[in-house]
Amino acid sequence: MLSQESLQQIDREIAKYPPGKKQSALISALRIAQQEKGWLPKEAIEFVAGYIGIPPIAAWEVATFYGMYDLAHVGRHKITVCTNLPCALSGGVHAAEYLKKKLGIDFNETTPDGKFTLKEGECMGACGDAPVLLHNNHHMCSFMTTEKIDEMLADLEKQ
């Protein structure tokens, strides 16, 4: 279900916690599974639960509680824009509108070619860098003017 590399990463997470506390690694294990699969299908959640040795429902609870898990298919590039107040004061909403126009999609939609998904995000703890957005959950892009958004999309288009 998961690659050897992902399993090794999960093992590294498990090793951070005391004996018998493997569940502590669950949040990271689901993150690792999602990174490999592109999203978090039911089978991956249940596999992770089995690997850690907890009931599937315990993994479901976490997968549905934390906002960065994608329980439905997303495009190859998920772009999450912060529109919360501090960002909005410096153009967060305008940046999101620009992205919607450029990609021809609304929040929570994916372009027909399956390349881009757009999401509205909550505070990323980087308000001084507004507008900010996250690429595939892990790479933060700061000071996203329309020029920088154009550049980013052109780069991602090539990948």
Partner: peptide, 19 residues
């Protein structure tokens, strides 16, 4: 992995426990 509430200290502890 994306939950503001985990900044509350007992929620944070629950979260470290994998819940």
């Amino acid at each position: 992995y994306g939950a503001y509430i985990c900044g509350e200290e007992t929620a944070l502890l629950e979260s470290i426990e994998g819940k």
